[in-house]
Design a protein around this nucleic acid. Structure first.
Lengths: 267, 267
DNA sequence: GAGTGGATTTCGCAT
DNA sequence: ATGCGAAGTCCACTC
């Protein structure tokens, strides 16, 4: 027989709680793996890969159910201090301040937050099964090229994707209408010299092992002037692709696997 | 004569407001450049460099006074959707949902959030002048090497830092005890093949323009196995440095400028 | 505004 | 665990 226990209200909100009151509510929330949201005056110490100190001020602090931590100042997209998921937390009162300590195991790191005033404390469990989908990634471009190789040039035939070479993976590899080997490096945004060097390295590695001519094509929406100079001097080429159009193209056949797109056999 | 206006309470907190009530409070907050914190059920569309859709679920939404936007799900360090500072915002009611739209000018991007339920709304101005200081950055290592060149090796004499070469900037450049040119690339953490290639590129560029032998040293706390192989095959070398120790060393003389550390003249 | 490189990058994937 | 590369990366800095 089922016993109905009293259901704890989902959203707990405390306005300007005392530090002792806040301590109790936060500890409860940690036990129950509730998300904790605090707006208050605090100072922060971080020790780990680097170290940092943040002097007192009013901030927004979030501890999520997965053990991630965010400390946000009044400005900026990025948190001033944080920890990725997986931390465990300790709390205690100390000289008129409430301490929340986030501890990470590997790498060993700690973030310690000292509150001397809390304006808002809220703890809750977020119910969120909503699907997240994103378009116009590098993978979408890759699929579009495999699906419609003429994006690169007439007569291009892809043979493999994510092909392992000595120094890493080639995004797409195939042959042109003259039968020459073609290696394609894909970037979803303006490419700089790094991408050119990366492609050059792949070409070098393949030339050495295959012992024949290899064409290198950088497929991206844009290329910087200096990168183009370098590209040209290395005998490589650039093909403009529009990530959005690629993404739209791919969306029509999104049920297909990448491997279905390959129509030619290895040469 | 000064007129005392009624002071608006700093922290406004609304528990489960109606969408219409929330709309008014949010619009007020935007006008007054207050930070807006919302916990509620929403769905999100993003269009810009890429596109994304997030189906309904409960999330934490923050709009900061500088026009940055964060949408956080119940897990993870990173926001699921966001905008960096500088957005402007529009709000309106629409078919039983409250819409908050963030618009960025360059690149042109929009994030649209539709709420159909709000559990917590809070608006406030954070007072935060607290200084933030961080230690053990790549710059700290650079300073430590300039301050105490024997970190690299006995007899090493730095000559320049951030020296411009054809393909970028060399972190530190100097001569060894034999008078050979030395180029040092600094990384604050484990280095992979990219850093090796970067150093190799600098060496190549300098060799070409200087027309003489150049030694390359990668200074970092660690190097990956494959990166070490590549390093060796390219005739470069690795020097282990501890970012923390470098940082401590630097802290003792943090009032000095980098340029004060250079004791030798250009050769 | 473009271009470059760092970051307590984080994240995911493969070895 | 290590290694590697992408990311709507963001950000600071230079030209």
């Amino acid at each position: 027989m089922a016993i109905l226990l009293p259901v704890k209200r989902a959203f707990l909100i405390y306005e300007s709680p005392s530090l002792n009151e806040a301590l109790s509510r936060i500890e409860e929330a940690f036990v129950e793996q509730r998300t904790v949201l605090i707006v208050g005056r605090c100072w922060v110490e971080y020790r780990g890969r680097a170290s940092s100190k943040l002097k007192p001020g009013e901030r927004i602090v979030i501890v999520k159910e997965d053990g991630s931590l965010l400390v946000h100042r009044c400005r900026g997209y990025e948190p001033v201090n944080w920890q990725p998921p997986g931390c465990f937390f300790k709390t205690h009162m100390n000289d008129n301040s409430l301490t929340v300590k986030a501890i990470r195991r590997s790498p060993r790191e700690t973030v310690i937050i000292y509150f001397d005033q809390i304006y808002l404390l809220s703890t809750f469990k977020l119910i969120d099964e909503g699907e997240f989908s994103i378009y116009a990634s590098e993978e979408d471009i890759q699929k579009a090229i495999l699906l419609n190789p003429s994006i690169i040039e007439d007569g291009f035939t892809p043979i493999e994707y994510e092909k392992k070479v000595e120094s890493g993976f080639v995004d797409v590899y195939g042959v042109d209408k003259e039968g020459r080997m073609v290696v394609i490096e894909i970037k979803r945004r303006t490419v700089g010299k790094d991408a050119v060097l990366q492609l050059a390295r792949y070409i070098e590695s393949i030339k050495t092992s295959a012992g024949r001519e290899v064409r290198g094509i950088l497929a991206a929406p844009q290329i910087s002037g200096e990168a183009r100079d370098l590209l040209t001097s290395l005998g490589l080429s650039f093909k403009r692709v529009d990530p959005k159009k690629c993404s739209e193209m791919f969306r029509k056949v999104k049920d297909k696997k990448i491997s279905d797109f390959l129509q030619a056999e290895e040469v």
